[in-house]
Design a protein around this nucleic acid. Structure first.
Lengths: 166, 166
DNA sequence: CGCAGATTTCAGTAAAATCTGAAAGCTTAT
DNA sequence: ATAAGCTTTCAGATTTTACTGAAATCTGCG
């Protein structure tokens, strides 16, 4: 397989993977493109490579920066902005865990808290509250586990953790 | 908060959560509805409760069954099918991990394998192959970790694991 | 200041995902 | 065998999400 074929296939599958994780195709593709690029790319280069509009490129690059997956880089003597992706896979995964935890897990736990105030007066409300409590319990455990995980380093994960868990 | 208010809010937020995880709103809502229902529900009851069409209900119920999150239940003397959700949260999570691993992680690793055959002839192809290898390495670790996780039981997760990891 | 080069915004459009409803397909009781 | 009662399917409609392109805004240099 040639580099160009491989690159196309990678952009394609990273984009598809993103879709099934609630991340839009283009955002994932920009991320993929920056991941495999040895140097920082400008917005124009990204637009070109992925054949997308300026607006689309801009919005998705901003989103990636918000997620902490991409950094802005200014080249001396250039007025344009260039972008680089975080290349360390463990950092990438930590980033994603941290952001999703903040955006989804935490708000969800907050809602479960409110919901657990439903009075348990019959079978239906008992079943309801039980589910809410279980979700809350499980969610809290996951929350603190993920906290610990994102504070530990890559070697710990790929080394020690693997042995401990087996 | 009354049961009905709480229920509405729960259906609503579980649906929203699903969306950001690549699961469609309705599928997540049917799951939510079955989770909090003390008895099995028929397709008609689900259609009614969520105000959706027969076709929509049927397709999403099937999808939930495929995921292993919902079971078909036949009541004696009834021709209709009834549906119950798996209520044990740890089982639910194991189900989701197992399915997503099978549907996404494994195919992705397969693609990375193909992609790592790109020859490393210059800076660009070296960077490309390095990223592919990193993803593969990380993905394989995740794969076996998740395997171990889904084979362990709930108590182990909420108990031991939490202590070990701290 | 004024303008050239660059980024951001956003209304309108396009594409993708999801849903509907009716028809076709099963299953079981008689 | 057939009809009633359910379930499944799927073409077309609807809704949601994403993208475009051009105008507005920003930035900093002469």
């Amino acid at each position: 397989m040639t580099l160009d074929e491989g690159k196309q296939k990678f952009l394609q599958s990273w984009g598809a993977l993103g879709s099934s994780w609630g991340i839009n195709r283009t955002m994932a593709q920009i991320h993929a493109l920056l991941l495999i690029s040895p140097e920082a790319l400008s917005a124009d280069e990204i637009m070109d490579e992925l054949m997308i509009s300026r607006g689309n490129a801009n919005m998705n690059i901003r989103a990636l920066i918000d997620w902490g997956l991409v950094y802005k880089e200014l080249k001396a003597g250039e007025r344009k902005e260039f972008f680089v992706a975080e290349k360390d896979m463990w950092e990438v995964v930590k980033c994603i865990i941290t952001e999703r935890k903040k955006r989804e897990l935490e708000p969800m736990l907050k809602i479960m808290d409110e919901l657990s105030s439903v009075p348990e007066t019959d079978e239906r409300s008992e079943a309801f509250v039980k589910v809410i409590r279980d979700i809350k319990l499980f969610g809290s455990k996951a929350d603190s586990t993920l906290d610990t995980l994102t504070k530990s380093d890559s070697n710990w994960f790929v080394g020690t953790f693997m042995k401990m868990i087996r």
